[in-house]
Design a protein around this nucleic acid. Structure first.
Lengths: 199, 199
DNA sequence: GCCATAAACGGACCATGGTCCACTTATATT
DNA sequence: AATATAAGTGGACCATGGTCCGTTTATGGC
């Protein structure tokens, strides 16, 4: 087995050729542009390819799928969020009471849905792998460790899954758009849920 | 406005022609058959139409979409389940302690996923309307009323949504298949969650 | 039984996500 | 600079969900 495999080895060397990197930028810009001026639905793979002036095959090679493209679009925000809750100031970051951090975490995620919910929803993968996406793992681990720190004695893995389920973009979006539930109400409900669980 | 609209008016008269009813049966049988012998993925609309010996347009006219077809496939089980928790014996049905009924409800749903999860997952609609499907409304109402009966003082609507989120077929299936979580563990976690919330 | 009419039908057609592969090109090595 | 090679590229092609509309047919009133 050579060392040329390019699996999860995150962040080492540039295993991506120059033109490839350029096209990635081109494509992301084109996609972001389409979202901005014609909405998420206008972001078809053909349209993005055309707008970026490359072939359709290239889009798929770079991002794997439409969901993948959307995820890349969210990548920056997602990383930022991770930084905030891992290294940022309390109550989101370390230093605050675990329960408060959990609450802040939910509040932040709900707020994110409000600003970029459409894209998050479009980034949703096929049902078969929806919950197997990497970004999710980080959240799970984080929530689990906060629950543990809060002294919650339960099946933390499953509990974390359950709690995160109520923060799913698609669900939150549905509650806000279709059910007319306000953000504040969702956030209050999250806080209440956490306090009950951690009580 | 005439009385000819055929909206949610459930169960009144046969607004469906004889041949239409026959084809519905034919299609459902064909679909069930395909699921049984070649798996959910083999259930394409063309395949079902061909197997039933009707045109593709007919399948869509009857069921609206692939998800709709799958939902119809689940309809019988779903109705049965509703009967059980509304009129059946405790602890699922009336008579038992609300908390126990909630627990039983979750257990039953999780068990359902084990037996027909694949189809439930395939019945999932597009993200835009995933949570707007009628079947969901019944569950929400039921959970809300049980929470109320249990004396839980909270934003019941949102809380019910959150709790139900952790019973979503796709999520439960992921936990069982990909994470290797056993049914018993999921059920135990549900019970724990309910007891914490209702505490 | 016959007719009018709304319902149902079927399959061609469209849009879009995704695959494939013959061809091109950036880059490391010498 | 020449070359080898792995990576990248483009667009034809495929599968499938979903729409449309001209044609057929069940059915209720006469």
């Amino acid at each position: 087995m050579t060392s040329k495999t390019r699996l999860p080895q995150i962040g080492i060397g540039p295993p991506e050729r120059g033109d490839a990197a350029r096209n990635r930028r081109l494509l992301l810009d084109a996609a972001a542009c389409l979202v901005a001026e014609r909405g998420v639905d206008a972001v078809t793979m053909d349209a993005v390819a055309a707008a970026a002036g490359v072939g359709k095959g290239t889009v798929f090679r770079r991002f794997g799928s439409r969901s993948g493209l959307m995820q890349s679009l969210l990548d920056h925000t997602e990383k930022e969020m991770q930084q905030r809750f891992m290294f940022g100031p309390p109550p989101l970051g370390p230093g605050a009471d675990p329960v408060d951090r959990l609450i802040a975490f939910g509040h932040a995620r709900i707020a994110m849905v409000e600003v970029q919910g459409e894209v998050q929803r479009a980034a949703e993968t096929s049902p078969e792998v929806r919950f197997a996406v990497p970004a999710r793992a980080v959240s799970i681990t984080h929530v689990m460790s906060l629950l543990r720190a809060a002294g919650v004695d339960a099946d933390l893995e499953v509990l974390a899954c359950s709690l995160l389920a109520s923060l799913e973009a698609t669900l939150v979006l549905h509650q806000m758009r279709d059910l007319g539930v306000s953000i504040e109400r969702l956030q209050a409900a999250w806080e209440d849920l956490i306090r009950r669980v951690a009580r």
